[in-house]
Design a protein around this nucleic acid. Structure first.
Lengths: 342, 342
DNA sequence: AGGTGCAATGATAGCGTTGCCATTACAAGC
DNA sequence: GCTTGTAATGGCAACGCTATCATTGCACCT
């Protein structure tokens, strides 16, 4: 005699396929087929079932569905921050790429912390995603191993300076740093200062910085002053740090910033302090943000197409279920925007 | 004789609890207990099992776990946009509130489109979230019904101008609009212009606008000119639209903007056009963004604590599994930031 | 010796769906 | 009439885990 277990049932009197099937006088299979829009179903049956679906307010349980079909339709996205406008822009590209597919993104934020990234990746993989899109190519050993062993497609976006696990989409930050400095050297600047943030947390900012130093060294130069802060990038920080570097090293030609937010802050300082830009001091940002273009004096900067990075990252992982034989890198490039501040 | 079905097995040679259990010579239950950190387990057993977990690279399948325990540990978050900095800030508050709990957020974006919101909510509910946090209180009828019938906790954040389904966290945008205008009237401004975006999409901007009109009408006044655009808020748009309104109505005292982005653009236009702020023309924004404070001339605006909104929204829905008898509204308030542009 | 209580572990039935057949109904062809 | 083919539907195990008992082993009492 079967013992009747009670379990957590009664919980929320959820409506299930079986409820719908019973009321519509069809089998579970038929309801399932209709809800998924797959397989052959007579029009009359479909209407009858849909009517009861509406009547009962049935919402399919994707958790059960994913378990049964062994496909979660999820794409995990791992980014370091949401407050840096750059990442929301990439997310828009990702969502655009995902639109029309039946895939859905799940976003996790690491706060530029590789240990947090490890936790976040573990949690993500537990949801059996079809693919993982992750910012950057520097991870803890454990993260690296998890991603490799997971078997799912992994696209590392933002940078292509390292060899990817599976695929990478972005551009070379080292090259971008070099390009910025070479451009400024070409315009005659010689006395460089650097204003940055993120310390050793924002690894891409660090790579650009390295590229800049490399290009300076080529010309027998180096940064004559640097002011770097921790934490997130803000206009206010850029302003304060620019004030500081100006006080510390008054004879600089040009300041390069870790990004546009900071550079805009720098410009605001100059406006307030009566420093003429670019005659007294030139400013050069990075990212090509909207705000830089709208300034009274458009900001000189390097522009990268972030929306495209997101979109192509999605394409890269949706193109095939299996990883390529050789890791692939997709270069989305960058361009110098001359502006009026350098 | 049992027929041996093949099914999609072999798929990814996934490691399961049973695999771990067999190798560690314990039962599935014990492995499960250890992975969840619940129930009594001898230290020696734990170590033995964890060793095999590491050896096999076992990652628990949360899909199966959620189905079995009838608890997904997911909190759905629905926001209109990621490019409007305001929402990432709220997300940070939400993540902060979720930290330490075992809950995890899942973010969906609606692009200020109520029909898209409906789709997004349906997809979210299919994942059986423990709660749904959704921006705003205006939804399609179907969305409203789904949320009501889902039985899960629902927190509508950003505004408290409407009666919520379950709970609301935010402030009154109508009051904020009124407060802005009354403040400006108090400072002697009489000839008002409005520069906005979002048309009838951004419903909260619209409510603030209504509040402004109401307060103007109280004083026997109205907007003498308005320039409104579609789409998302940008500094560039603010600049262009300010130029337009200045050309169209040169005698205005003060411009109120739908938000700070637009107002910053307005200030940039004034700088370029040689319009003295606030003597020739005063500017008043909304949101209290970081950039407004860092300007050479701090932007006059209204500040709301968005991080707190996110955090308290989480608190509200985690405090209890069941809805309160009466819908509750939590007012996080706002404050006028005097600044130097009005 | 025989109970008692508790720590530790095991066995198993679901959780709500879907994949994979099997089955039915009915029209067309011989 | 009897296959044969195809559209439509049904039955049921399996997905990987956890909730809920049941059981075992052992120290400690009386």
């Amino acid at each position: 005699m079967a013992k009747q277990r009670q379990r957590l049932t009664d919980r929320k009197s959820k409506v299930t396929v079986s409820d719908v099937a019973r009321l519509a006088e069809v089998s579970d299979s038929t309801v399932s087929r209709i809800m998924r829009g797959q397989g052959l179903v007579a029009e009359a049956t479909r209407e009858k079932v849909m009517a009861t679906v509406r009547a009962l307010g049935y919402v399919p349980n994707r958790i059960a569905g994913s378990l049964a079909s062994l496909d979660s339709r999820l794409v995990g996205v791992v980014i370091p921050s949401l407050s840096n406008i750059v990442f929301p822009e990439i997310l828009q590209g990702i969502n655009a790429g995902l639109a029309g597919t039946n895939r859905q993104s799940v976003i996790s934020v690491t706060d530029y912390d590789l240990d947090k990234e490890e936790v976040v990746v573990r949690n993500l993989l537990a949801w059996q995603p079809a693919a993982v899109l992750i910012a950057g190519s520097t991870h803890t050993e454990a993260t690296q191993r998890m991603l490799e062993n997971s078997g799912v497609r992994v696209v590392e976006f933002m940078e292509i300076d390292h060899k990817p696990i599976d695929a990478a989409v972005g551009f070379s930050h080292v090259s971008a740093g070099k390009a910025a400095v070479r451009h400024l050297l070409g315009r005659g600047y010689r006395r460089f200062g650097y204003v940055g943030y993120g310390g050793d947390k924002d690894l891409r900012a660090l790579m650009r910085y390295r590229g800049m130093r490399y290009a300076l060294a080529e010309a027998g130069l180096s940064f004559e002053a640097e002011v770097v802060s921790e934490g997130q990038t803000t206009v206010a920080k850029g302003r304060a740090q620019t004030a500081e570097i100006c006080a510390r090293a008054p004879d600089l030609d040009v300041l390069t910033f870790s990004n546009d937010d900071m550079a805009v802050g720098g410009l605001f300082h100059c406006m307030s302090a009566g420093i003429r830009v670019p005659d007294d001091l030139a400013l050069f940002g990075f990212n090509g943000l909207d705000i830089g273009r709208a300034l009274p004096q458009p900001l000189s900067t390097i522009r990268a197409n972030r929306f495209e990075i997101g979109q192509r990252a999605v394409e890269a992982c949706l193109s095939s279920e299996v990883r390529p034989d050789q890791p692939i890198s997709i270069d989305t490039g960058f361009e110098i925007f001359e502006g009026a501040t350098a």
